[in-house]
Simulated assay, not measured.
Amino acid sequence: MTEQTTSNTNNVVANVEVDNSYENDSSYGDELSSYTASLTSSVLDYRHENGRRYHKYRDGSYLLPNDESENDRLDMLHELCLMVLQRKLYLAPISRPQRVMDLATGTGLWAIDFADEHPQAEVIGCDLSPIQPSLVPPNVKFLVDDIESEWAYEKDPFDYIHARYLTSSIRDYGKVIKQCYRSVKPGGWVEFQDWDAFPFSEDDSLNDTGFLRYYKEVYGSFEEAGYEVRPGTKLEAWFKDAGFVNIHVEKFVIPYGVWPKDRNLKELGAWLQAQAEASGFEAGALAVLTRYKRWTKEEVIVLSSLARADGRKRTIHPLFNFSVVYGQRPENLPR
């Protein structure tokens, strides 16, 4: 099989036009609500800290909560990703897969939706926290596992492995992707969908803002703690290094807030802002800043409040990069 790498730009925006059709209105107010009205054993011995709940299995390896507020936020991100991909769960050219893995499945929505869409497939979702629902399709099962530990799937490999939104939760992406290579069948596909966690703007409107300070403080601390926070733009290189072929890259730019003039971008921005305002700012900051930087809970709340307030200003136009990369394990090559 000849190695082939393709790169498509889909929904990548340059010079996003600001919607200025407002008079004497400097914040989003009711408009944001109009876009988000539709949002509706020892392993269980969870860690409780600063009013939030965290996983206990491999305690401390993942720094975001696993409580109901966080689960609701993850479900909102599931919907956001579906909107970005035009209601598709995946982009890889898979056909009638029989055995599928969803890495770090979270609340399990992707695995459940995939199982409904592919009833012939056995779908396994793994996560550090057993927070998934118990009433699921018969072809789904969930495992408590640490994907950064050594795997034991090589003897029973998968047709397709999926991972999404692992930024700031993985220290060694390259190792994980190599384990995916070893655990997928020859000819099988692996797909990662992930962010660059640092925002940017095309008009320098983020300069000297509490919004930008939040991301520098929080994700700078994640980096100091050894976590990868900008995986999206590095996935293609990791896939090549692991040995995948027919690598395909899709790049997206997602706004934060309803400032874009384009209707679709405005809706995407509303969802991204809604999940952050719901609990995302505090969820992302509390553990890493209090455990690694010795911040107090109150200091984290102040930082989050500043980011939330600046994020509502129409004069600030944040953007985030989001990438989807998939590749195929070569056929006729030894494992």
Rank of each mutant, 00 (worst) to 15 (best):
T5R: 07
N10E: 13
V12A: 07
A14H: 14
N15I: 00
N15Q: 13
V16Q: 06
V16E: 03
N20F: 07
N20Y: 12
D25E: 10
D30M: 01
T36Y: 09
T36V: 08
S38V: 03
T40Q: 05
K56Q: 13
L63R: 15
P65R: 07
N71I: 04
N71G: 09
L74T: 14
E79S: 07
L80S: 09
L82N: 15
L85F: 14
L85K: 05
R87T: 06
P97T: 04
P97M: 11
R99Q: 12
V100P: 02
L103D: 02
W110E: 05
F114D: 00
F114E: 01
A115D: 01
H118Y: 15
E122L: 15
P130D: 00
P130W: 13
I131L: 09
Q132P: 02
S134I: 07
K141R: 14
I147G: 03
A152L: 10
K155I: 03
D156V: 01
D156G: 00
I161D: 04
Y165G: 00
Y165K: 10
Y165R: 08
L166W: 12
S169M: 12
S169N: 01
G174I: 01
K175Q: 11
I177D: 13
K178M: 04
R182H: 05
S183W: 10
V184Q: 04
W189D: 00
W189R: 03
W189A: 00
V190D: 09
F192G: 07
Q193M: 05
D194E: 06
D194N: 04
W195E: 01
P199L: 11
F200A: 01
S205L: 06
D208Y: 09
T209Y: 12
L212P: 02
Y214M: 07
K216V: 04
Y219E: 01
Y227W: 12
E228Y: 01
V229A: 08
V229I: 14
R230Y: 08
R230E: 08
E236N: 07
W238A: 05
K240R: 12
K240Q: 09
G243R: 14
N246Y: 09
G257L: 03
W259A: 04
D262A: 04
L265R: 14
L268E: 01
L268A: 03
W271D: 00
L272I: 11
A274I: 09
A276L: 14
S279M: 08
F281I: 06
V288S: 02
L303H: 04
R308D: 02
G311P: 00
R312Y: 03
T315G: 06
I316A: 02
L319G: 12
N321C: 05
F322W: 15
Y326S: 09
Q328A: 11
P330K: 11
N332S: 12
N332W: 13
